[in-house]
Design a binder for these strands. Structure first.
Length: 652
RNA sequence: GUCCCCGUAGUUCAACUGGAUAGAACGUUGGCCUCCGAAGCCGAAGGUUAGAGGUUCGAAUCCUCUCGGGGAUACCA
């Protein structure tokens, strides 16, 4: 039962015939922000004040008089300037919990109008190892897919792999010139990623050498400007600002030179690298050449690609399997390759794409720079692939909504892409960039693959599991909790807890904010963490086990639920708001709404647990009632976590 | 230069998208295990929501400006 929905309906009925859009105003009924204001609050009267020309307080009073709600709530409370506070009847609360607990969906309804969603997430580059930067897109996208599906939408998940781009040219070049055959034989993927990093390093070295004179000149110019602005700065506010800007420009330019020199030194201090850099001059162009040959169907490069792909994919598959992430499709860039040429021809013929400076562009109103769909050298770009992807999805899936779970830095690209898609006839699809903040290190700098020394994702997962093992399976702790676990069980538990720590740390932040990847912090098993919630679940499982009940529906329906204690009542209310939490996740696509709910529920349970003895309750009836509350909480936590892609264990 | 995002307790984050006295966690700190698992519970301290104006019944949220941080900016993805 959609409790909030029902309350809104009642308000809409009361408003009907009085104001123009009763439904819209009824939306302003929501769970109370503060328990002092009851269970639900309706902030409806205030915005109507002007419209009706009556005092908000008076409106609230009249509204309450028209409201037919006493079957659900105690008499509503009206407070200045016009707040309406609702408190549910205890017997209503009890019966709602009871009917939710025997339902496998825990009473959560489904959408009235089922939409088709295509969600694009994870999308790693197969040529380089997955790293921490990929976790956000993967975890957020997976969770959104699960929630949308659970609420009744049709969801098509697609992993838009980077399997056809410049990176592959680099790997091919590396393989042709630098491969260590024995290493490749022993561990092909490791060797390929070594080759990738090597080529990458040499390219950035050569770029550094080339850009050094320009960097020096930039410093000179900035310094010159600095001394100019310095003279004028005294007393003049605008000039002072310029002086400040110039100072910063000099600092930045100097820092840039330092970075350049670092890159240069790293190669030049290594005789072998240095020699390679000399032998393979203009490596970027050469690597690009390999990419072009691949795209043109060169047999040798194509054969290498076909040989590498399964290796890279199975490596990825391993990570996904471990994280319990699945996709309906994994259509990478290569999948769309054959569609690009015809697409661009159609766009040109229709006059939508126009030549400019040798490239072919779609000029999008409102953007300074056009969107390039073909480079001057004839190659296609990722915008081209993205358009082809939209076209393909329209043809095969007819989506109502398309979500791109991608780094916020690509915001402008997507704005442009969506605008372009509208101009070529896909305006009916609701396309949204589900942006998320950058994954940074402790200094707040983004993690980068280019630096070479990035920790691989599987290493991080191992690390998290390892720490979970140390904390959860600490022998002293296990003894204190009187837990005898086999080594196998201990491993299972720490795997579940460790992976959950990583996923949860990511999901519990508002997705738009930057996120500091600090393994030490996220495996702290205190506070707002997955482990806290999983621990609540384990305690509940233990109570049910000790009570020797099997929580079947038959068992649950013959229990009379009493909510005499405030802690019991608060817990019941919390349980009923599970559905609200899920719907609010869809409002802007924030899985953090669900983590916040689950954490609040787990805390509420901990209070209840402390204040209300279950197994040692005063009467058999009370014992049964509290057992039912435990069971309802456990089921809600388990289902909620599962929608985040997080598992539970009965003992930990 | 232009455009976009951000600035909330010492720290990491919330605040139901304009609602009531801005909430949690970590850290600091005081209590609670002869009692269902103390990874827990109950309490305390900690805030001019970067700053200044404005909009209205009401602003962390919307508008303008200032300061500070990050990002994007035609042939990488």
């Amino acid at each position: 039962m959609k409790l909030t929905e029902t309350l809104r309906d009642r308000f809409a009925q009361a408003l009907d015939g009085w104001v123009d859009q009763p439904q819209e105003y009824a939306q302003r009924v929501a769970p109370a922000r503060d328990p002092r204001f009851g269970d639900y609050q309706a902030n409806i009267a205030m915005p109507l004040e002007k419209k009706l020309g009556i005092k908000a307080l008076e409106i609230a009073n009249q509204l309450v008089a028209r409201l037919k709600i006493d079957d659900l709530c105690l008499p509503p409370e009206v407070l200045p300037p016009g707040f309406i506070n609702l408190r549910l009847r205890p017997e209503v609360l009890a019966s709602l919990v009871q009917s939710a607990v025997v339902d496998e969906r825990l009473g959560v309804g489904q959408v009235a109008q089922r939409l088709t969603y295509v969600i694009d997430y994870s999308s790693p580059n197969v040529a380089k190892p997955m790293h921490v930067g990929h976790i956000r897109s993967t975890v957020i996208g997976d969770s959104l897919a699960r929630i949308l599906r659970f609420l009744g939408h049709r969801v098509i998940s697609d992993n838009h792999l980077g399997d056809w781009g410049t990176q592959f040219g680099m790997v091919i070049y590396g393989y042709k010139h630098f491969v260590d055959a024995a290493a490749f034989e022993a561990a092909p993927v490791a060797e390929l990623s070594r080759l990738y990093r090597l080529v990458q390093q040499l390219i950035s070295y050569q770029a550094a050498v080339q850009s050094r004179p320009a960097a020096l000149e930039l410093i000179a110019r900035a310094t010159e400007k600095l001394s100019m602005t310095q003279e004028r700065a005294a007393g003049n506010k605008k000039a002072e600002k310029e002086f400040k800007a110039a100072t910063r420009a000099v600092e930045e330019a100097e820092q840039a030179l330092i970075d350049i020199d670092k890159k240069i030194a790293r190669v030049q201090s290594d005789p072998l690298l240095n020699q390679l850099a000399i032998q393979h001059s203009e490596l970027e162009t050469r690597a690009q050449g390999e990419t072009v040959k691949l795209h043109q169907g060169d047999p040798e490069n194509l054969a290498l690609w076909e040989r590498f792909m399964p290796l890279c994919l199975s490596e990825l598959e391993q990570v996904y399997r471990r994280l319990s992430i699945t996709f309906d499709y994994q259509y990478g860039e290569s999948f769309y390759h054959a569609m690009l040429e015809p697409l661009v021809e159609r766009l040109t013929a229709a006059g939508l794409a126009k030549p400019s400076d040798g490239a072919l562009c779609i000029f999008v109103p409102g953007f300074d720079a056009p969107m390039l769909v073909r480079k001057a050298d004839g190659a296609f770009l990722y915008a081209t692939t993205d358009l082809a992807t939209i076209e393909y999805r329209q043809e095969h899936f007819q989506p109502d909504v398309m979500l791109y779970v991608v780094d916020h830095r690509q915001g402008e690209h997507f704005n442009k892409l969506f605008a372009a898609a509208r101009t070529i006839g896909y305006g009916h699809i609701d396309m949204q960039h589900i942006a998320f903040g950058t994954v940074t290190d402790k200094e707040g700098k983004p993690y980068k693959t280019r630096e070479g020394s990035v920790m691989g994702l599987d290493y991080l997962l191992d690390e998290a599991v390892d720490r979970a093992y140390q904390v959860v399976c600490d022998p002293e702790r296990l003894q204190r909790a009187n837990l005898q676990m086999s080594e196998v069980e201990q491993r299972t538990v720490s795997e579940t807890v460790g992976l959950a720590a990583i996923k949860y740390a990511d999901l519990c932040h508002n997705r738009t904010s930057d996120y500091v990847f600090d393994l030490n912090q996220m495996v702290q098993l205190e506070g707002n963490t997955a482990a806290y919630i999983q621990y609540s679940y384990a305690r509940i499982a233990n109570i049910l086990k000790n009570a020797e009940v099997s929580p079947t529906n038959a068992w649950a329906s013959q229990i009379g639920l009493t909510l005499a204690e405030p802690a019991e009542r608060d817990l019941a209310l919390n349980l009923l708001q599970f559905e609200d939490a899920l719907w609010s996740c869809l409002d802007g696509y924030y899985p953090s709404q669900l983590t916040a709910y689950l954490y609040a529920l787990a805390r509420q349970f901990a209070s209840f647990y402390d204040l209300c003895p279950v197994l040692k309750a005063d009467t058999a009836e009370l014992r049964a009632s509290r057992l039912l509350l435990c069971h309802a909480t456990g089921s809600t936590l388990k289902l909620g976590l599962s929608l985040l892609g997080i598992g539970v264990v009965d003992r930990m």
